[in-house]
Amino acid sequence: MIEAKNSITEIWLAGGCFWGVQAFLSRLPGVIHTEVGYANGNTQNPTYEDVCRRSTGHAETVYVKFDKTKIAMEKLLDYFFRIIDPTLLNRQGNDIGIQYRTGIYYKNPEDRENIESYINGKQASYKGKILTEVLPLDNFYKAEDYHQEYLDKNPNGYCHIDLAILNEIGKE
């Protein structure tokens, strides 16, 4: 079945190390394409080493293209919030640094209100303040090829996300 062109949309999600975030999001029903990269930093075309060792300000981020008739933005965010701790600043799992902050980045200004409403509704579920940044996407640079679908190519690679959560989603 061919998706209606106006049902395809995109969002950029930062949730710590992008390997596991991509492995998780790419398996969700309705997600058409994912790509890992570096978002909202202050340098052009950074490398992984730049992001890890220099003050580029980029977040490890996953570009997500999805069909909103198959997975609504709110549902996608529900799944995203299952794999992150949005109350942590600049860390997820064992990874620490500004590049591991959580963020939701958008291009469509209409998405901002929906995302902020979602987060405001979610806040009651957490003891700490949700620190996930919600910002327009200023820039996104595709990460090196060896980072793309890293956990598919390296099944025993490091991942701070319990991908077994996907089994629960399949039963919903």
Rank of each mutant, 00 (worst) to 15 (best):
E3A: 12
A4T: 10
N6E: 14
N6I: 05
T9N: 09
E10H: 08
I11E: 02
I11H: 01
W12E: 00
W19H: 09
G20V: 03
G20N: 05
Q22A: 13
A23Y: 07
L25P: 03
S26F: 10
V31N: 01
I32W: 09
H33L: 12
H33I: 08
V36S: 04
G37T: 07
G37S: 09
A39G: 02
A39K: 00
T43S: 11
Q44R: 15
N45Q: 12
P46S: 15
P46L: 15
T47Q: 12
Y48E: 14
D50N: 15
R53L: 14
R53V: 08
S55V: 08
S55N: 12
S55R: 08
T56G: 07
T56C: 08
T56L: 07
A59V: 07
A59R: 05
E60Q: 08
V62A: 04
V62P: 00
Y63D: 01
F66G: 03
K68F: 10
K68L: 10
K68T: 11
T69N: 10
T69G: 03
K70Y: 09
A72T: 08
M73Y: 05
K75W: 03
D78G: 02
F80E: 03
F81Y: 12
R82M: 15
I83M: 00
I84Y: 01
P86M: 04
T87A: 00
L88G: 01
L88C: 05
L89N: 12
R91E: 11
G93C: 00
G93M: 02
N94M: 08
N94W: 07
I96P: 01
G97A: 04
G97L: 05
G97P: 01
I98K: 11
Y100R: 00
R101D: 00
T102V: 04
G103N: 07
P109F: 11
E110Q: 14
D111T: 13
N114K: 14
I115S: 14
E116V: 15
Y118I: 09
I119D: 07
G121N: 15
K122W: 12
Q123S: 05
A124T: 15
A124N: 13
K127L: 14
K127G: 12
L131D: 00
T132M: 04
T132S: 06
P136Y: 14
L137F: 08
D138S: 14
K142I: 15
A143Y: 09
Q148A: 13
E149N: 14
P155K: 00
Y158I: 10
C159V: 00
D162P: 02
L166T: 03
E168N: 12
G170Q: 09
G170S: 07
